[in-house]
């Protein structure tokens, strides 16, 4: 019996690999054939589409551009609060304040993304009833809600990256007469930059793939290229969702598979990058720690 169980256990990972391989093979089989400039730009010449001279109706370019704008805007909105909060938590916060921040970040990390979307939606309903009767869901609103979604990721990775630095670094710098602010900004942050970068990339991936938030806060199927902060926009994940329910012909469906494969590749690429950055960072830190102790 005891000999048999370990063998049976191998079935569990095997099953997982088979299921994932089946899904991936299916996506590849249906989607890989669509990979060509036409998937993005349809019949429009790529250069004209990129420059926005001609609108693209039968390609994914507007959705890709929308997602790009969305993640960049999200990053811009969440960078200062996220990084600032991470630094504060790692270097300054008293135990009381740290537990308040930790609690709120835990709550935020556990909140379903559809609830973040609802928050944005409620905000618009509220604004319409009070100050701004013309308020509508838009790119800016989506980015604001997404930045709430990625905030815990940025806060925890930047805090962890700073805490991974050896304590003696802080003491040495203090003994040299550096002020706390100088220690943090001139010494610790540059040292932790790789770990922090990994967190920012993870946040990008998270913001780029989320669908529930944007479907409540302004993503639509046919908006063309993103026109402005206060306009509706297209996004890659929303395009996939929309195609699934509303496709009219085989061509549109094939484009849906292309989009799904593209999004999968993009997020896997981002996460792999973050993973290796983080691993190299931690290995380097531990290496430093070891030599610091041994000699």
């Amino acid at each position: 019996m005891n000999k048999l169980v370990p063998l049976l256990l191998r079935l569990a990972p095997l099953l997982l690999i088979l299921v994932c391989a089946a899904l991936l093979a299916f996506l590849l089989q249906r989607g890989l054939g669509t990979f060509s400039p036409a998937l993005l730009f349809g019949n429009v010449p790529p250069l004209k589409a990129l420059l926005g001279q001609e609108p693209v109706w039968d390609g994914l370019w507007p959705a890709c551009a929308g997602t790009l704008c969305l993640v960049l805007l999200t990053q811009a909105l969440s960078l200062i609060p996220g990084l600032g909060c991470g630094i504060y938590l790692a270097e300054y916060a008293s135990p009381n304040k740290a537990s308040i921040i930790n609690l709120s970040m835990d709550i935020l990390a556990g909140t379903p993304s559809i609830v973040m979307g609802l928050f944005g939606f409620t905000l618009i309903v509220f604004l319409r009833k009070t100050f701004l009767p013309d308020a509508n869901t838009s790119l800016l609103l989506s980015a604001a809600c997404l930045s709430l979604l990625v905030l815990p990721v940025i806060v925890s990775t930047s805090c962890e990256a700073l805490r991974a630095l050896p304590q003696e670094l802080r003491i040495t710098a203090a003994a040299l007469g550096m002020k706390k602010a100088a220690i943090v900004y001139k010494l610790l942050l540059p040292q932790a930059s790789r770990g922090i970068a990994a967190g920012l990339i993870l946040a990008l991936a998270r913001a780029g793939e989320d669908t529930a938030v944007i479907m409540l806060t302004g993503a639509v199927a046919n908006a063309g290229l993103p026109a402005g902060l206060f306009d509706k926009f297209e996004a890659l994940p929303f395009a996939i969702y929309y195609t699934c329910g509303e496709y009219q012909n085989a061509e549109e469906l094939a484009r849906g598979f292309g989009a799904a494969l593209l999004l999968l590749l993009l997020s896997v690429l981002l996460v792999l990058t973050a993973h290796f950055l983080q691993r190299r960072y931690l290995r380097h830190r531990q290496g430093y720690h070891a030599t610091g102790r041994s000699c």
């Binding site: 600032g84 300054y92 905030l151």
Partner: peptide, 27 residues
């Protein structure tokens, strides 16, 4: 006094916590 966080760090942390509070309160 030098070991206290600067204004911007406190503001950033406050913003982050207030975001969560606003989310819960709004809903």
């Amino acid at each position: 006094k030098d070991s206290e966080a600067g204004f911007w760090l406190k503001l950033a942390s406050l913003l982050a916590v207030l975001g969560v509070v606003a989310l819960c309160a709004m809903i």
